[in-house]
Design a protein around this nucleic acid. Sequence first.
DNA 1: CTATCCATATTTTTT
DNA 2: ATATGGATAG
Length: 751
Amino acid sequence: MHPLLDGLNPEQRLAVTTTDGPLLVIAGAGSGKTRVIVHRMAYLLDQGLARPEQILAVTFTNKAALEMKERVHQLVPPTRRRGELLVSTFHSFCVRVLRRHLDRFGGTYTRDFTIYDTDDQGRLVKACLKELGLDEKQFPPRMIQSAISAAKNRGDTPDTLPPSSDPKRDAIVRTFRLYEARLAAANALDFDDLLLLTVRLLRRFPDVADDYNDRFRYLLIDEYQDTNPPQFNLVRLLTQRQQNLCVVGDPDQSIYKFRAADIRNILDFERHYPQAKTITLARNYRSTKTILRAANAVIRHNRARREKSLTTQNATGEPIRCVVAPDAEAEADFVVGEIIRWQRQREHLPEADTRAAVLYRTNAQSRLFEEACRRRGLPYVLVGGFSFYQRAEIKDALAYLRLLLNPHDDAAFDRIVNVPARGIGKATLDILTARASQTGVSRWTATEHLLAEGSLGGRALTALSSFVSLMRGLQAMVEGATLADLLQAVVKRSGYLDMLAQEGTLEAESRKQNLEELITAAAEADERGESLRAFLDQAALVADTDLLVEQARVTLMTIHSAKGLEFPLVFIAGLEEDLFPHARAAVDPEELEEERRLFYVAVTRAKQQLYLTQAERRRVYGEEKPTDPSRFLDELPEDALAISAWAGVRAQTASAPDGRFEPASRPIGETPWRRDGSPEPRRARPGSSARPMADAPDRQGFKVGDRVEHATFGVGQIVRVADGKLDIAFPGKGIKRFVTEAAPLTKLARR
DNA sequence: CTATCCATATTTTTT
DNA sequence: ATATGGATAG
């Protein structure tokens, strides 16, 4: 047998070797679909069916792309893969195409376009509403924003939408029109545009489409159930000349409807490609029988689905443990305590077999788990939330760079024109806005016009012209200087560093450190020979999961971020009505089914042991409210659970004599953790937060709970002191370990 | 024009 | 509980 097929089951082998024509691989959770894609690519290369540059593989995140590429490289000797194997996300691929060909349109858009992220988009929508005199209360920007995005993904433009007497529809259409005009004036594309314009480009210029059709002889699409209409169109356009298309996905794991993903793409694949062969991978290699049985039972409650039941030869495994905690803090404490206990029992095992994940529905839940981890000194990595590239100072610095590359980037302009404050206030900006919208030019051009006319008052004139000369001076550097030097000049000459220095707060210090880290990243990009353009593209398109540290033994993330990942130990937290399923989803039966698929995804992340937790009370908008158990809990087979009753489980809070926190809740039948028979003291009141772990201070006087500053990572909190090593949690960056003597640390005052 | 205070909404999920 | 935005004062 061919060595690349070794260790694959018959269906997987078939999926790897059926290389001719369209192929649909319905791959259940944990059925080794990534493995199939990887081996398929390796097989194509090995058999000489394609050279690397003739293969295009599309994954859901850049991280997955990198990993997949690496795995192919491991399977195929370098001699067989001269040329670049293209594995990327749809968005990254489209940026590549557009950077090459967008000029063909001739109009306002050029290949120097800027990418507007969700944040920029939101600001723009707000500005448009304001300009149109529409009330934000009546038409929430977020709602308008998603309406515009939905319309775009349906293929609508402001012109195809008829004027409506419904004030809401009317507001949407008018905002949509202005929004598109402003984007065009700024030579900016939002995330949706990246896909839409690529489709339009390939349609309008058949020679370009032909080029790509000739180049890519094999197309592989992962997570096909989450493709949206423009992505589908793109796939269509790339398979005009040949249909060596392999799509892999699981309809039961479709969880991105809010992003316009259309599950029909995968359900109707055989209709779209009549020649298609279909292979189903129904054997699960990941989870225990118990976990899989639960997953199957849950997903069976969805009506709109094709029946598919996964089987496994794995062990039966432990029952799924369900725990009700009195409140969310106790829930987090319990989870962290269990992780510690579980990992201790497995100290002798390889690290990969001791990894744990805490999954939750909303990012807001992450904080509690972070805090619990810190209290217990458990190192963790947080995925998502406010990632590095979402920090204000990082976005500010990048906005300077964006403006240097594209002066018409209005979002960048607005972001930094008065940051740091240089005397350009509301009045001046209003004049600027008026001029820009009257003449339909960018804010930068409007500024130039205003300055040239000399119609501005003295103070505004000085302020604006100093800004313009700052940018011109920096612009002169763009060609010659390295990225790192350019960035350094930006933060220095703009006065950004001075502003931070003047603030003198810890917060400002930490921001400064973040900027230094960005400069380090720029220096690394310099070493890779990356252009400023590539650096900014990457910053706009990185997903939070892309930054995930694989080695972390504990990962906190939303279920959405966990798609495609697996862990021996998984906790699904917050199993409460209105949280999971989320209140906004529970009203619509279709959305409820999507929530259930989300739950299915969460359950199937677990390999060995699964915990489901609920908090009996949870703070919502600062107010404690009682919760109801999630309806999903009722959908699990009772005999797969460690407890079956959910109502009325009320555990007392236990606290250990040495001040450590113990889980405040436990499954029925387990004795509370207590060393002596003393009456249980009440838990610290909210507000006076928990005492940190009472580790002995080391000889430099660093204690758990101290706030410290590190030269590179900024301000953090010590979470563990042991064996001459310090674990320090840096907000948003996870926990790093240092050797006490060597670490460049400064102790800071307690908050 | 900037800084500060107070009211208000805010929580799905992400390329 | 916290972030944002508007109003007010300096």
